[in-house]
């Protein structure tokens, strides 16, 4: 696929509260840089994530979905991240069948102290998606384009 140099992938990153989200927090404190097209959504545990969330994200035009949980064996809820791993794997197959490259959905394991790793993983993911190009359904028939609203906007809508 042709890669568009101006293309900034929109990626939803589901980060678990106890590890990956804390590492994103730390990445902020450490002033680590990662592309702005990544929106982090805090979740109690990656095992809490319904697989429909991944499907809906792609259906609504997300270019990639990153699921970041604790290190294997280090889940606050013992095995939530292991359950998430299997679910992500199953949904990757369904995405591939539907015509979305499975590389657009990825699960990683990040501990609360691994801020540099998180930034590296995000950069890697962004590069993979830049290679793949935008979510294929966005390009056809003026497909849906996921809108990242600022927190202020979201709050003002309530």
């Amino acid at each position: 696929m042709m890669s568009d140099k101006t293309f900034e992938p929109k990626i939803i990153a589901f980060c678990c509260h106890y590890c990956a989200y804390a590492s994103a927090d730390l990445a902020g404190s450490m002033r680590l840089q990662y592309p702005t097209g990544v929106r982090i959504i805090r979740t109690p545990c990656t095992g809490r994530l319904e697989v429909e969330y991944y499907m809906r994200a792609f259906e609504n035009g997300a270019d990639g979905v990153l699921v970041a949980g604790c290190l294997e064996g280090g889940c606050h809820f013992i095995e939530g991240n292991l359950l998430a791993k299997k679910r992500v794997s199953a949904i990757r197959d369904i995405l591939q069948e539907s015509g979305i490259e499975k590389e657009r959905l990825r699960m990683v394991n990040i501990s609360a102290a691994m801020a540099t790793n998180l930034a590296a993983v995000i950069n890697e993911m962004v590069n993979i998606i830049k290679e793949l190009g935008p979510n294929p359904i966005r390009k056809i028939n003026n497909g849906p384009d996921i809108e990242f609203k600022e927190f202020e906007t979201l709050n003002s809508q309530k």
């Binding site: 369904i94 069948e97 294929p136 028939n141």
Partner: peptide, 19 residues
């Protein structure tokens, strides 16, 4: 109900992909 949701999502994606 859950599988309905997943398969519907997949079909909407496949449909759009096919134009």
């Amino acid at each position: 109900e859950r599988e309905v949701s997943i398969i519907s999502s997949a079909l909407r994606i496949a449909s759009r992909k096919a134009g």
